[in-house]
Amino acid sequence: MPSKKDILDLHFMDARYKLIDIAAFLDRVERHPGAGDFRLNALKMAIPLLLSDQPGRAKAILESFSDFSTEPAATAHTQGASGALNPALAEG
C-alpha cells in the first residue's frame, strides 16, 4: 500500500491546481454583473465540508448537492440536471 507521501507525490499538484481553480471561479463569478443562482449557493455550502476531520468528504459533498425528497415527481420539469437542487423546482 502506498504511503501518505506516495499519495502526495502522485496527487498533490493535481489537488492544488483544482483548489486554485475553484478560488478563481468564485472570483470570476463575483466580478461579473448580475445575480448568482442556486448553483452558486450550493457550491458555497459544500466548500466547508472539505475541512472536515472525518473521512467521507466526497460523499458529504455529493449529498449536499442531492435531492433528499422521497416521493416520485409528478412530472419532469426538465430533461437534464443542473448539478444542484433548484429550490424552485423541488417537490415534497
Binding site: L62, E63, F65, S66, D67, F68, S69, T70, P72, G80, A81, S82, G83, A84, L85
Partner: peptide, 13 residues
C-alpha cells in the same frame, strides 16, 4: 441511475 442532484433520490426509489 440519474445524473447529479437526482442520483441519490433515483437510486433509493
Amino acid at each position: 441511475t440519474p445524473h447529479l442532484e437526482d442520483k441519490l433520490k433515483g437510486t433509493r426509489l
